[in-house]
Design a protein around this nucleic acid. Sequence first.
RNA 1: GGGCGAUUAGCUCAGUCGGUUAGAGCGCUUCUCUGAUAAGGAAGAGGUCCCUGGUUCGAAUCCAGGAUCGCCCA
Length: 1059
Amino acid sequence: MSAPHRPVDPQQSFPALEEQVLARWKQEKIFERTVENRQGARRWVFYEGPPTANGRPGVHHVLARVFKDIFPRYRTMTGHLVERKGGWDTHGLPVELAVEAELGFDKKEDIEEYGIARFNAMCRDSVFRYLEDWSRLTERIGYWVDLDDAYRTLDNSYIESVWWALKTIWDKGLLFESYKVVPHCPRDQVTLSSHELGQPGAYRDVIDPSVYVRFPVLEAQGPLAAGDELLAWTTTPWTLPSNAAAAVDPELPYVRARGGEKTAEAGAGETVFVLAQALVERVLGEGAEILATFPGRELEGVRYEPPFPFIAGDAYGERGHTILLGDFVTADDGTGIVHTAIAFGEDDFRLGEQYGFTVVNPVKPNGSYDERMGPWAGRRVKEVDRDLVADLRERGRLLRSEEYEHSYPHCWRCGTPLIYYAKPSWYIRTSEIRDRLLASNETVNWHPPHVKHGRFGNWLEGNVDWALSRERYWGTPLPIWRCAEGHVHAIGSFDELEQLSGTRLDDAHRPFVDEVEFPCGDCGEPMRRVPEVIDVWFDSGAMPFAQWHAPHEHEERFRELFPADYVCEALDQTRGWFYSLLAVSTLLFDQSSYKNVVCLGLILDGEGQKMSKSRGNVVVPDEVLDRFGADALRWYFFTSKQPWDGYRFSHETIGEMVRQFLLQLWNTYGFYVLYANANGITPPAGAPDPATLSNELDRWVLSRLSATVEVVRDRMDDYDATTAGRAIQAFVDDLSNWYVRRNRRRFWDGDADAFATLHHALVSVVQLLAPFTPFLVDEIYRNLVPEGAASVHLTDFPVAAPRDEELEFAMGVAREAVTLGLAARGQAKVKLRQPLHAAVIVATGRERAALERLADVVRDELNVKQLRFAAAADELGRVEVKPNYRSLGPRFGKSMPLVAAAVAGLDPAGVTAALREGRTVGISIAGRDHQLEAEDLITAMQPLEGYQLEREGSHAVALELTLDEALLREGTAREIVHAIQAARKAGGLDISDRVELRLTGPEPLEQAVREHGDYISRETLAVAVDFTVDGDVNGDVNGDGTVSIDGQPLRIAVSRVAG
RNA sequence: GGGCGAUUAGCUCAGUCGGUUAGAGCGCUUCUCUGAUAAGGAAGAGGUCCCUGGUUCGAAUCCAGGAUCGCCCA
């Protein structure tokens, strides 16, 4: 007879097993079949946030990818059609920087010299450099996604869809070009968008000079005299040569002041300074003399001498180098007088616009001064800070200079400090649709929920226009053409461009697209494309339609797959993809493109430190996968904590997860297979009907299973894999450490109900686990159900059967009683092998009924001959009556201390008697009588001296410890069985081998053997038991040795019987 | 400087509606069991529930302020 199941290797290497499963999935196209299987079913839509494959994937990518995997798997099993199109983000500055580094470039001009066509060709090659690594890892961790048909943002079709989107936005009047002060990277010569400033590492603490600069007043005006000096404060000395004006708050009080400790140090003790009143002491030091006080508005128009002479005041217009009034000025720091450089600050720029200033910008895009700046021309602005300060000091224009530590934005890729810089850029007027963005966000179900109105909602509230354009090379070209007259045309498709220009694009990238010209429809002048490409975040935000080339193609496909039910990325994408997806779809379709989103936290190392190459604590996914396997890593990510809380990653924790859970499941499965094979049990079909099961444990475990299915479905429906996974783990623990342990005997005996029950429980568990740990459970499923589906992933997710909650409660009570009884044994130091006469259990009502129902279980587990119930609890101990605060608190409020005192004064015996008979108990509080019911009082046991008793709340179990000869002999017999089993094992016998036993020992042991011979034979599969008192053992034996039983020597010889 | 989150045993984490003895796993110590055996069971040690104040009969839980850590923004 061939065994129903392949034998299970208890030493199975999980990583090796996973490789086998992977090979089978591939060969049998299991993933494809899970999708085909649901053709015609209701869709559940997942969008893949595209990664860039120009670097090796790290462990945080594994985190994201397994969370992207689990819910689609779950929804597929619950009957949905879930297609999973992969995607790759391919454009952008990171790609360009990698290529630049490879070519040894360090400035933008190098690219132009090298040639944009060659440069972009290299970018195109480099973006898939690690595609192999990504594909291999994706497959290895069991992330089911269609990478063969993945969308790629560099494809012409993708770009054409993005063009359509931009033209649509243009037609709505929401795309425009404007001068703005923007964060500018002088190294990459590129504007950074606000979400790029949100990239990790953008803000860094730096020390800059903080300078108090003196602006001499040229002529007396208002409250000021000629020769008074305005004090201005700045942390960017390099902007001082571009000083255009000084700003004060109109309402704030300002002063003329002289003296003070700090001016003395600077050798300016006699000078009259002008500054905000509130800052006099901080800036001038103690002892300054205030000469006059006046509101800032009186200072408007005062002319002063700028700190550097390179740009004349009238270059800015007639208000150049005068005092202006600004609403952004505060007396929080500095001097209350703000040095204003129109081109280098957002507030400055706005103020300049307001006063009609001309923008004069003496800084070139590469961050160096132009020829207007005399001796400083050609020098990099950030490098010249300290020299400028020295120059000011020499010329007596500096009050003092300090070090100032603050956090300052840097380019997130190249690390260069950014400068704020006025330049023309293209924007999407997202601020105009802010309310629509907020409305879209309202429809999104965020996990964790606080992101919705917290981090993300706040960000939307403060929405600023999307800085869309980038003066770079490798990206989606901005489809805007313009003529010399300034007429503008936005192109929405390649057909449109061809009709206008006669040129069909083979490659929509630069430089080819730059060469396409056509005559202006308004004036006939040639139109040329503006030079910019667009922010890559717009690319990825356009994926809902661009992945299908909609609307140019597959419009209906896009419509049926929009919006997504589910997206998932790391928390840092709130300003990244989560925003661009929401913004693009709100701009175009006035709705969110996703309904549910899971945000993932950061992965730190075991010490809570950020992973970084310099610390050498970066976890390489392959190491973890080779050592523990993908299921172990997945299980860790899913269940160790809520994913948005972040992880402290350690190999030890994953090892523990394997032992605690995967190994426990594997052992339980192995146990089933071992005994099913031994008994020739063929796999039962379907679930056993609880009504036909006579064993309470069978019905109990099925009810527990149903309870687990309910929780798992409920939690998974709410994107809570953590609670769902933990519920499965708790069930597997119950299954292994209670159901199987309690029923071992029945499995040895081939009990059909037990096998059917365990089989169903195991099959259900592996189905529940299929989205979590897809490898291991598929192996288990296939072996448990050899005639079933080709894979557990092709089956339907378990549906909860009716539960028997009374039985679940009863088992809880029984297990509690067992725990108490085992504890009592431990206290009394009586071995479990020694049978005892009785356990006496205190329990009433529902709990007593529960224990009577499950008496067999409790008796067997505690190894006692009978269970007795204490008629009244005081047989075993003193009863204590306590108030139930939960029910009495709301009723009595402030009087609770009086109630507690009154309850303490009650007679416990009387109370328990009354409650048992269903009567109420009366107490008197402040002269008024109140009736207390059973639920208002808690009875607890206090142990009496001299009893071996364990108690927990209202429960107690006592053991009767007196032993007689019969019990002792039975205990001895169990010791002997234990010794024989050890000998069998030592002799290398299989668990089903029949044996002959020859025992030699003193007379008391013989008695035990004679009296319990049947028991010993049954337990040890002995066909013959021969006992010789103090004799010798001869003949061929498989195991032979002497052990000590209760201090007496027993020689055991075991020999296998053929057949 | 502002927003969001976190802080519970040596470690990793639960803790429902505020309810009077705050739990689990791991680790440690001591037992125990063994036909799942690198597993299982019991006991023990281990807690300022970050701090301070408030609300309440009652606070790990609610409120305010503060500390520390993380993320985000400026």
